[in-house]
Nucleic acid binder design. Structure first.
Lengths: 190, 190
DNA sequence: TTTACTGTACCGGCTAGACGGTATACTTGT
DNA sequence: ACAAGTATACCGTCTAGCCGGTACAGTAAA
């Protein structure tokens, strides 16, 4: 009785954000090709005119999406740095597809980066540079940090590719724990 | 004098292959969106009609491309297994973008896998499964093998993303050597 | 009145694909 | 030997539909 499908006091998600969500979702699910203006508008239950009211062009939509990604990544870098279980543990565990907003935005961004979009490539490169520097600070060794980043990248690829197929969950929590233990061996014994 | 731009006795590359090459190249450079039939035909210096003579539909073009990828990957798995410097060394060194036919085909395939193409996803999953099994045979430890595959995947991502930007070559031969040494630490000390 | 849209109609360019035609080489019957 | 037919390997044109974008008239709420 107290639980409705939505908290009645919760402000509705602004149309602008719903449009960005829909854009990301389409990119993640079907790549650049699927993410047309018509499809985005339909997925957000907004008319095409409404979409173009908020974003004057597809370019503007991309810009806004990337800006949101950058903001989320900035927060995340802080989360990695201050994670109780340590930066490496946090980074690795959040590299599998968890469905978090950052996850979705990051994968959406990498879909665009596969195309000719220079901005997307630059944003992704910058984000990874930032993550790398956090890990470097944590492990005090460039080569090791780089290897850890590669594993993180690999996890992203795997989970965004194998996604929702008939594959039994490869990257279980337990598997992640073992992987992190394994990564421990990379650390120079100080 | 003896060297012309081409061996005069060399048979010209068949149009069919040139079309597949062009298709891959466009996918690698600009993603699914760039790889239209018109663009493929133009890049191969063939009319659109000519393209459709060899491949009755875009689907057929994709099928042929994936078939070639599978064939190349099959050969490669054998190369990994029998590499003089060992499977891990070979796998890691060939995970950076070398411009080899397999490289190009693999990246082209992963561009398609970003979209809705089920076949591409299945093919890539299958290829990685094959590689993993070779590495498993070599290192006798599932977790370690999986970690090595993740690093390999990460290298692919990095080199296909940062490709030909103003980034100084991150993955030099020397860096690869150090990475491989690092990976050595993952191996259980038998 | 302004903000935040909806809905419709339209346009130019692109996209996949169909189709008819053509040049050339090879085969077959006589 | 030669005409007739067939297969191969394309070229050039056309079309239906999609895509990004424009334009604009209307509406409902604050």
């Amino acid at each position: 009785m107290a639980l409705m499908s939505k908290n009645p006091a919760a402000p509705p998600v602004p149309t602008r954000d719903r449009l960005l969500d829909a854009f990301e979702e389409l990119l993640v699910e079907g790549g650049e090709r699927s993410a047309t203006l018509d499809a985005v508008a339909a997925a957000a239950a907004v008319s095409k005119g409404g979409l173009l009211y908020h974003f004057a062009s597809k370019d503007a939509l991309v810009d806004a999406m990337l800006a949101r990604l950058v903001a989320l990544a900035r927060e995340d870098a802080e989360n990695i740095r201050t994670a109780p279980a340590g930066p490496v543990d946090y980074l690795i565990r959040t590299s599998v597809h968890t469905g978090s907003p950052l996850d979705r935005a990051y994968i959406a961004g990498s879909r665009l980066a596969q195309g000719r979009d220079l901005r997307a490539r630059q944003v992704l490169t910058e984000i990874r540079r930032r993550w790398l520097s956090v890990i470097e600070d944590a492990v005090h060794d460039t080569d090791t940090a780089q290897a850890i980043m590669l594993i993180s990248d690999g996890l992203y690829v795997n989970s965004s590719l194998a996604e929702r197929e008939l594959t039994p969950p490869t990257h279980t929590d337990e598997a992640m724990t073992r992987l992190i233990a394994l990564i421990g061996r990379l650390l120079p014994s100080t």
